[in-house]
Amino acid sequence: MRLDKEQSKEYLAEIRKDMPKTKHVRTMVRAFLTGGIICCIGQGIGDAIKAIFPSMQEDEVGGFVTMMMILLTAILTGIGVYDKIGAFGGAGSIVPITGFANSIVSPAIEHKREGIVLGLCANMFSIAGPVIVFGISASVLVGIIYCFI
């Protein structure tokens, strides 16, 4: 049994009246705090590296910080902490590089049991894949435009 389009629209309108809403203020505050703390940790690592290796260039320090943050996330994901941070922080934990690392490590852990090649490797980018595709496409596009100006 199937409703026609008009009836279906009416039904959807009716159920949407009563839907529980996402608490936007709360989620935004949490996202701001979580994202902010993650960035502060990154900044802290950067400052520490600069203090230890004063001769290091600024962009080298940046690369180092990125690697450290990815490593930290991978460890936190592996021991089952990062999903709790994500559930609390929402976009605050997804937008920084840590969110990207989590989206690669989590399917890798999950699919490890189906084997290394067809399980782990094939599924590693199941969530992050589109980001990479769009990232590469955009960079190629920008590169071509840059060529002509």
């Binding site: 994901t77 999903d83 994500g86």
Partner: peptide, 17 residues
């Protein structure tokens, strides 16, 4: 979760519904 949604360790929020 794994079959219909996301990996367990992915830091995502559940919708209120």
């Amino acid at each position: 979760e794994r079959q219909y949604r996301f990996p367990l360790e992915l830091g995502s929020q559940r919708t209120p519904l």
